[in-house]
Write a protein that binds this DNA or RNA. Structure first.
Lengths: 256, 256
DNA sequence: CATAAACTGTTTATAGCATAAACAGTTCAT
DNA sequence: ATGAACTGTTTATGCTATAAACAGTTTATG
């Protein structure tokens, strides 16, 4: 890859490129490839065949180059993956807030809208969920999404730590709920679900596993039909929990 | 592997072995290896060097056998991983409930105890967190843990779906919180945290990222000192959210 | 203007991975 | 006693990421 600013030397993989910190070089043959082209091809491949299909050789082949050519633009496959995920998140897109229509606090509406928006990104590029979260967000688009969520939480009475914690938790919640829904959807529902329950009844001991068996015997246990029901349930519970904290705090403030 | 009951033929990888469904065979040379020995060696290796160090060749070498010998006892590496995770969870261990000491509802205490207990398993075998969750729990120990959590939730007024959803959410919450705490702890804290924040200040646009920057400028943003603080925060919020649902429901019941 | 530095892409090579296939030895059911 | 069933080994295949050396191209500098 082209030489970098001194600043950019010790950054985690992909971050320098993601933030546009490498200066284009003047000398040398002009490049046909670029990180952007490679990432684009890799995303196309992952969308079509999953993250497991993304190998350096395959991406290069799709572009009409050799595997090693990619290493002129990316330090490692890890770097490619970081850039893919960042690009797949993309810019947050919110329908501009229609003011407070309902009687519920604005932070709830905003957070819910954020959750639905990022869920859509996961559904568009499900392979993002196959790339494990390694640490706090450091890539441009991930930080933009975090920013949007923090803006939704800004009007609340939460402390800085609480806001950060809540934001990270909400992000995890959407991620894991969506992942669960997609996993289940993959095993085209009713047949697979029946066979899962059948398996449980064959294997479980009615004594040691009475609650599990009771649950799956319950006729009221509807397989969540609409996509997003599971996420909605978890999200509303979490919002209620945050609200409880705020209410408690305000009542303490009032009595001081 | 030895021949299996007809029942055991179509099960997901590892499940048949985990539930002890393969009959030991009488004919043939007596085996020196066994799934149990292999899994034990693999866990020892993962504990010491991480999940990435677990290859069939390495596990076999540690046992003094060839790679291919493992395939006489396990269908695939996937099967090994499933069995490792199941064994690493192990039997749930709860200090027998000391009745209701505090004035809070028993389901809260029980759920909290469950969360802390499973968190300890993750801390003992952090590599469990590197193995992605693929679907609903099907292995014996995972189902035992689920059973224990459902028992804690049993006295609540939640419906069957709500209990299942809540249980899965709680499991996700503990998993992702612990993962985050371990990720951060890996980068031996203060130095790495400072450099992360420094990075943000160098890269972020004070306009486009005002909330993120404001947050990290806040002197009140304490790096959570005690292990488990992050988990506790998220957990209490979630418990509050569940409680809010129950309270709302009871008040509706009363007015009907 | 010539030369060297810097860059791009290719070829070749290595070490690791999961796992298939064929084979030799062992034990028990028939 | 014979053959089926089993265990473990050897050998081989096709993947993977990526290091190293090389050829060609462009541009900055002598």
């Amino acid at each position: 890859m082209p030489h970098e600013k001194p600043d950019a030397m010790e950054l985690p993989p992909g971050i320098a490129i993601a933030w546009g910190l490498d200066l284009p070089s003047t000398r040398g043959a002009k490049a046909e490839l670029s990180p952007a082209r490679i990432v684009e091809a890799a995303i196309r491949l992952a969308d079509a065949e999953g993250l497991a299909a993304v190998s350096m050789a395959r991406v290069a082949k799709d572009l009409g180059f050799t595997s090693m050519s990619l290493y002129r633009h990316l330090r490692s496959k890890e770097e490619l993956l970081v850039l893919m995920v960042d690009a797949a998140f993309g810019e947050p897109d919110f329908a501009a807030s229609p003011a407070a229509v309902s009687d519920e606090p604005g932070w709830r509406t905003g957070t819910r809208r954020w959750a639905k928006a990022i869920e859509q990104r996961y559904r568009k590029h499900p392979w993002i969920l196959d790339y494990p979260v390694t640490g706090p967000p450091a890539s441009p688009h991930e930080l933009l999404w975090l920013e949007q969520l923090l803006r939704a939480l800004a009007p609340t009475s939460l402390t800085a730590s609480e806001k950060l914690n809540s934001a990270l938790m909400l992000a995890n919640l959407v991620r894991s709920s969506t992942r669960m829904e997609l996993d289940v959807a993959d095993n085209d529902s009713p047949a697979a679900f029946e066979s899962y329950v059948g398996l449980l009844f064959k294997l479980l001991d009615p004594d040691k596993h009475r609650e599990v068996l009771g649950l799956f015997s319950d006729p009221g246990l509807a397989v969540m039909e609409d996509a997003g029901d599971e996420l909605s349930f978890a999200l509303e519970r979490h919002l209620d929990g945050m609200e409880a904290l705020m209410v408690r705090r305000e009542s303490i403030d009032r009595q001081d």
